[in-house]
Simulated assay, not measured.
Amino acid sequence: MMKRLALILPLAMFMAFVAIAVFGLGTPQTRQIESAMIGQSVPEFELEGLSDTKPGLASSDLKRGTVTLVNLFGSWCLPCRIEAPQLERLAAEGIVIHAIAIRDEPADVEGFLTQYGDPFTRVGLDPRGRMQIELGATGVPETYLIDGSGIIRRQWIGEVRQEQVADIIAEVRRWQ
């Protein structure tokens, strides 16, 4: 009896562990860490741009009465490539989108915009990733809705997906 229990108990524990792992991995994760900056004014910053035709971005650009989206991205970021068509759709709807290129080189950013589309009015270069920290971002891509007074109203963590486009348009229109 003891020998049988000594064999069954570890096997039962192992099977319980496997069941928990399988069901836990299959459950979608809904928890995300929202930036503490939601409801706050954008931090003061001024970022260099790509060129004369693609100016940089400063906090003052976000306080001129226009509701905007600010997208943190990198040319090295695979999910940023996935979200590119959705950002193009948003820009086609008349939504102003600015970008902050995190830890990137200007030539790489230009190549990315040429290959995947350029929905951005302004692109600020942030080679050290300071704005990622200042905005409370957990990574890239992340997109922020900024009202016309420069207050951060909403955050989308991860790539903008096709099914989110209508929600984002509605949110922008709500704050206009």
Rank of each mutant, 00 (worst) to 15 (best):
A21C: 08
G111T: 12
R174H: 10
A6H: 09
V96C: 02
L125H: 05
A21Y: 12
W175N: 09
R89S: 00
S51T: 14
F73S: 04
A170H: 04
L69W: 01
W175Y: 12
V18M: 12
M37A: 14
L72D: 01
Q86A: 10
Q132P: 03
L90Y: 01
G136S: 11
S149H: 09
A6N: 06
E44R: 14
G150K: 11
F120D: 00
I82P: 00
T114E: 15
E93N: 08
D104H: 09
V109F: 02
I133N: 09
R4C: 00
Q115V: 08
M2G: 12
T114L: 15
I82A: 14
V160C: 01
E34M: 14
R128M: 14
R161S: 12
S60W: 06
E46Y: 06
R4A: 11
V42S: 03
P127K: 10
R174M: 10
L135P: 01
L72G: 04
I157N: 08
Q155L: 07
S35E: 10
L7G: 07
E134P: 01
V109Q: 03
A84Q: 00
F120Y: 14
T30M: 15
G117E: 00
V22P: 03
I146F: 05
L11E: 06
T121N: 04
R64C: 01
W156L: 05
M1D: 07
F23M: 13
Q155M: 15
I38Y: 08
L62R: 09
Q32W: 12
G124L: 06
E48A: 15
R122A: 03
M1Q: 09
V22Y: 13
Q132I: 09
Q86M: 07
R128Y: 10
I100N: 00
V96I: 11
E88N: 04
P10H: 09
G124F: 02
L25R: 10
L50D: 03
M13N: 02
L125I: 05
